[in-house]
Measured scan of single mutants.
Amino acid sequence: LTVQLGNLEWHFDNPEQALKMAEELAKRYQLKVEIDNGTLKFK
């Protein structure tokens, strides 16, 4: 699973870790998370 923020990307083997990080980033920057083809992206 990949977490993508702008041109930064983090790759996780563990989806739970990816979701946890995505939630933290979304909270911190007040963004919405969307999943696009196995990639978590922020809007």
Rank of each mutant, 00 (worst) to 15 (best):
I35A: 06
L31A: 02
F12N: 00
Q17Y: 12
D13T: 12
G6A: 05
H11T: 07
K27N: 09
L5S: 03
K43Y: 15
L1R: 06
L19C: 09
T2N: 07
H11E: 03
K27E: 09
N14V: 08
V33C: 06
I35E: 06
W10Y: 06
A22D: 00
Y29H: 07
N14D: 14
Q17S: 10
A18Y: 04
D36L: 10
L8M: 12
Y29R: 02
F12E: 01
H11R: 07
T39W: 11
H11A: 04
Q30A: 10
D36C: 12
L19D: 00
K41F: 06
L19E: 03
G6D: 04
N14I: 10
T2C: 13
L5G: 01
E34M: 14
R28W: 07
A22L: 08
V33K: 00
L8A: 07
L1N: 04
P15M: 13
K20G: 05
Q4P: 02
K27T: 07
I35Q: 07
W10V: 07
L31M: 09
D36V: 15
T2P: 03
G6T: 04
E23R: 13
Y29L: 12
P15E: 09
Q4M: 11
T39K: 14
P15G: 06
T39L: 10
T2D: 05
R28N: 04
I35G: 02
T2M: 07
L31T: 02
E34W: 15
E23G: 08
F12Y: 07
T39N: 06
E16Y: 11
E23T: 11
F12L: 03
W10Q: 01
W10N: 01
F42K: 01
T39I: 15
T39V: 15
G38W: 03
L40K: 00
E34T: 12
I35F: 14
E16S: 10
R28Q: 06
R28C: 14
Q17P: 05
R28F: 08
V33E: 00
E24Y: 15
Q30Y: 10
K32S: 12
V3F: 04
E9G: 04
G38Y: 04
P15K: 12
K20R: 13
V33Y: 15
V3G: 02
K43T: 14
K43F: 14
N37L: 04
A22T: 02
N37V: 03
T39Q: 08
E16F: 10
A26N: 02
Q30T: 04
K27Q: 09
L31N: 01
Q4V: 14
K32H: 10
D36R: 10
H11V: 07
L8V: 10
V33R: 00
A22F: 08
D36F: 11
Q4C: 10
L1K: 04
F12S: 01
L8K: 14
L1D: 02
K32M: 11
L40R: 01
L5I: 09
K20W: 06
G6P: 03
L25M: 07
Q30D: 12
D13R: 07
E16K: 12
K43D: 06
F12D: 00
N7E: 09
L25S: 00
N7T: 13
L19F: 13
E16H: 11
T39E: 06
Q4I: 14
V33L: 11
L1P: 04
K43G: 07
L19K: 08
L31V: 05
P15Q: 10
D13N: 12
T2F: 06
A18W: 06
E23S: 11
T2I: 12
V3C: 04
L25W: 08
T39F: 14
K27W: 06
L5V: 07
E34F: 15
L1M: 13
V3A: 03
V33G: 01
F42D: 02
G38R: 07
K41M: 06
L19N: 03
G6N: 06
Q4W: 05
H11L: 06
E9N: 09
V33I: 15
L40P: 04
R28G: 01
E23A: 12
D13L: 10
A26K: 05
K27V: 07
A26C: 13
N37R: 06
G6E: 04
R28V: 05
A22G: 04
E34Y: 15
F42L: 15
K32R: 10
L40D: 01
A22V: 04
D36G: 09
Q17R: 10
G38V: 05
I35M: 12
G6S: 04
V33F: 15
E24M: 15
E9R: 15
T2A: 06
D13W: 09
G6H: 07
A18H: 01
A18R: 00
K43W: 13
Q17A: 13
L5P: 01
F42G: 03
F12K: 00
A22E: 00
L40W: 03
Y29I: 04
L40A: 02
P15L: 13
Q30P: 03
W10E: 00
G38M: 06
L8R: 15
R28T: 05
T39R: 13
R28L: 10
L25G: 00
M21C: 15
D36T: 11
L31E: 01
T2Q: 04
D13K: 12
Q4R: 11
D36S: 13
E16N: 10
V3Y: 01
K41P: 00
P15V: 13
K43E: 09
F42Q: 03
M21T: 04
L8P: 00
N14K: 08
L1S: 05
L8G: 04
D13C: 10
K32C: 13
P15T: 12
E24C: 15
Q4K: 13
Q4N: 05
L25D: 00
F42R: 01
R28M: 09
I35W: 14
M21W: 15
A18T: 03
M21L: 14
N7H: 12
E16A: 13
K32A: 11
A22W: 05
K32F: 11
E23H: 12
H11P: 03
K27S: 08
A18N: 00
D13S: 12
F12H: 01
G6K: 04
V3P: 01
W10F: 08
Y29G: 02
V33P: 02
A18K: 00
D13Q: 11
A26R: 05
N7P: 09
Q17C: 09
